[in-house]
Amino acid sequence: MQNTNDIILKAINKSYQKGDNTVVVHDDFNLTIKSGEFVALMGPSGLGKSTLLHLMGGLDQPTQGEVLIGGQRIDNLPQKKLTQWRAENIGFIFQSHHLLPVLTAQGNVELPLALTPLNRKQRKQHASMALQLVSMSERADHYPKELSGGQEQRVAIARAIVSDPKILLCDEPTGNLDRKTADEILALLAKLNSDSGKTIVMVTHDHKAAEYASRVINLESYILSQNNSLSKNEELLQNIEPEVDDISIGASS
């Protein structure tokens, strides 16, 4: 029986056309992330780390295979349902925060709540709480251009968590930040993982950043281990955790 919050990528094939060539990004890829885990996905560029993140968030569809979240297949959901599902279950944090310059921090955080049945007062309350969680209450009325890079990323995190999604997908969230600010942001993510039980999947090149995760997956060796495994029987793959290249650091759990 699956835990309802697990993320499971099953026999994923992902390829795309580049001119006349077919570029294979993933071939028969399998991964399970348990509910409440903070997983760092590492590895060299071009291995498809961000692609995995996009598949988990329903932003992209696999060429073949299944993406199950909480026991629900999302790779074959119609676009309309997928959009709605994403709004309710997934929070995205990008390297570039993509905050809207015309809205204040408060306005940016309130934006995803336009997708909910909450009224204006409730939206304000929720956004204030989210800003408080990321220690940005005092800057609520500031516009992005009045904030530092770290503060902008905090607001982006508040925006990602404001509708209380269970899963946070972070694509190089500290890629543009200095070490000190990056550490603050990572500590914040670790806190959200430990205190609020958010499942976090973070793509990063930064080994220091990976130390905050409860599990680090080096994608290069992970794929190698999958290819070397004796059997690719689907039933077995569901039960086998490729622990060889799975480095558990456990800094935050």
Binding site: T83, Q84, E88, F92, S96, H98, L111, R159
Partner: peptide
Amino acid sequence: SKEIATHKAIGFSP
């Protein structure tokens, strides 16, 4: 395009 993509990622409908 990035702003629009962000809106889509957040969950705004096409």
